[in-house]
Write a protein that binds this DNA or RNA. Structure first.
Length: 557
RNA sequence: GCCGCGUUGGUCAAUCGGCUAAGACGCAUCCCUUUCACGGAUGAAUGACGGGUUCGACUCCCGUACGCGGUACCA
């Protein structure tokens, strides 16, 4: 399956892309890291194979809650890693000190834990490539940025925000509404291209500066995306991105490349929003001299709003009545609470299953997958290119399927907690489980259990009198009065025993049992819903049944 | 504006040139159930548009339209 030592043929368009990674069975698989830069001049391209352990990472910035799309990115990373016996790393990209939000990192870790997608390495558990927080690796980035300057691939820039704005304003035109800091304009800015060495040295000590990548002119930067195939960009359309900010922190562009290299990442999966800046990253891999180690890229499709346009954002969720975060997130600044799937009543298995099927399927008709089936069947090349609209109804369907599928023991504690929060304390675990078992077919969310079964634990106070009043009469009243005695004298309180006693008595009264069933239900439940009445009567017991009949009889008049 | 990536029912989607175009969610009708559900059955509903290539195109190519993303000292 994984022949050793074979090399790719050289022709530019004949490079065999090694997609079928999943066919390899050993933990060590062959990966191809290749990059080809098509330039006007000598075609330079590299193509090499190496054997190494699969390592993937999820690299969120701790700026708030963990979004659906984020969890799906985690999932795909996780599945790919586990499928290949590789490692899944959590790396915190906290390079923007302005957007840092306290508690966000722990929240992300908690979400991953709830989903069962725990990393093998990360800031909370450490690992051989620690630290895993970029803010703690600050010095590393500068060193590489300086190296790029030294090699002529980057330069110092001293322009202030005001000067940048002025430049953009000055060159703005109909055909170029957003002028870029690039080969065309950089010669007119204040940077180490336009200034003498002495002046630069002087300024370096005196004022803040950034390091920018020097984007080449007229170069096609192409790479093979595991999902999209060949993707190509002209270097002309990309500006000289800032690599190192004035505060000494790297931007994402520098940090991902440096860390992916240092952490020996073999496959980099991220959202599609990164596709346009991928040439910057590819060039950086090349300029830093690491191209043979470059990971294989896969840009995941976005998850879109159910209606309207654009990608799903936290605002849509609460507006449309469904969560967009994995778990409840309370913004420490504003105090705003944004709801999560966990608290909404989702099973983590269902949440993960639903996410996996949003943009991926295994080609069969199967829709319900557990994590080990997903791990076995997942393949990155079957991930769709186009974005998927999120449909909360379908998400609920997944949850319902999982509620029916999972043993009650797995989630009863969650439901118990929900009951307690709603004022019902559970004392008898065993009968609680029986009740859950009885009503689970009619619950799509864990929070539905309360509404579907509270009457097992508490007598109804208000009764739906309108449902029985029109057909209520003295004969029925007499029936129930006598039924109280019959039930009290029963040998056992099994559902079937109660049922036959009920029907026998109905026959004796010459009333159709069907005409008595609804009143009985109203007596026990208060309304027209719930599992079969005799099951309810059996569950609440003889004494409680009699009590409820009595209470109702007093209210039916 | 420019650059990139997309486009099969309302939504998620199968299809790798042979289509009378799967399946699921949702919706409708019926059956089951003397409640509400579950379950079962049936039904309505799909290849953006225009050109090529081909015996044959949803599938390959080119345009157009539309959507999305990017165009920051944010990630």
């Amino acid at each position: 399956m994984c022949p050793n030592g074979s090399l790719g043929r050289g022709g530019m368009s004949f490079i065999p892309h090694i997609y079928a990674l999943h066919i390899c069975t050993s933990a060590l698989i062959r990966t191809s890291a290749h990059l080809h830069i098509l330039s006007a001049h000598p075609h330079i391209y590299y193509f090499c194979f190496m054997t190494k352990k699969v390592r993937v990472r999820f690299a969120p910035s701790p700026t708030g809650g963990l979004h659906l799309g984020g969890v799906r990115t985690v999932l795909f990373n996780y599945l790919f890693a586990k499928q290949h016996g590789g490692d899944f790393i959590l790396r915190i990209e906290d390079t923007d000190q302005n957007r840092f939000v306290a508690g966000a990192e722990q929240y992300i870790i908690d979400c991953l834990n709830w989903c069962g997608l725990n990393p093998d390495e990360g800031p909370h558990i450490g690992g051989p490539f620690a630290p895993y927080r970029q803010s703690e690796r600050k010095d590393t980035y500068r060193q590489h940025a300086e190296q790029l300057v030294h090699d002529g691939h980057a330069y110092y820039a001293f322009d202030t925000t005001g000067e940048l704005d002025a430049m953009r304003e000055k060159f703005k035109s109909e055909s170029d509404p957003q002028p870029q800091y690039n080969f065309f304009h950089r010669n007119q800015m204040r940077n180490s291209f336009t200034m003498g060495n002495d002046e630069v040295r002087q300024l370096l000590m005196e004022q803040p500066y950034v390091i920018r990548i020097k984007m080449p002119q007229e170069e096609q930067v192409s790479f093979t995306d595991m999902i999209r195939g060949e993707v190509s960009f002209s270097s002309n359309t990309i500006d000289d991105k800032v690599l190192l900010k004035a505060d000494g922190m790297p931007t994402y562009h520098l940090a991902v490349v440096v860390d992916d290299y240092l952490m020996k990442i073999t496959h980099a999966f991220r959202g599609e929003e990164w596709l346009p800046s991928s040439p910057v990253h590819i060039l950086l891999w090349k300029y830093l001299g690491w191209q043979t180690e470059m990971p294989q890229w896969a840009h995941l499709p976005l998850i879109l709003k159910p209606d309207g346009h654009g990608k799903l954002s936290k605002r849509d969720g609460d507006k449309l009545g469904f969560p967009v975060f994995a778990m409840d997130w309370k913004d420490p600044e504003s105090g705003e609470l944004i709801s999560g799937f966990k608290e909404k009543g989702f099973l983590p298995e269902a949440f993960v299953n639903m996410l996996a099927l949003l943009g991926w399927n295994d080609g069969s008709e199967q829709e319900i997958f557990n994590i080990s089936e997903l791990t076995e069947k997942f393949s990155i090349e079957r991930v769709h290119k186009g974005g998927a609209r999120f449909d909360f109804e379908k998400a609920k369907w997944f949850n319902h399927e999982w509620i029916k599928k999972q043993p009650v023991q797995d989630w009863q504690l969650t439901v118990k907690k929900d009951f307690e929060d709603k004022g019902i304390s559970i004392t008898d675990e065993l009968s609680f489980i029986k009740v859950l078992e009885l009503v689970k077919d009619r619950c799509t969310l864990l929070t539905d259990f309360h509404d579907q079964s509270w009457f097992f634990f508490k007598a109804p106070e208000t009764l739906d009198l309108a449902a029985i009043k029109p057909k209520w009469n003295e004969a029925k009243k007499q029936f129930f009065l006598e039924f109280e005695e019959v039930v009290g004298a029963l040998q056992d309180a099994e559902s079937a025993t109660i049922e036959s006693a009920f029907k026998d008595l109905a026959a004796a009264y010459n009333i159709k049992a069907g005409d008595l069933l609804l009143p009985f239900r109203i007596m026990l439940v208060g309304a027209k819903f719930g599992p079969p009445v005799f099951d309810i009567a059996a569950a609440i017991g003889v004494a409680q049944t009699i009590e409820r009949i009595n209470y109702a009889l007093n209210h039916f008049e």
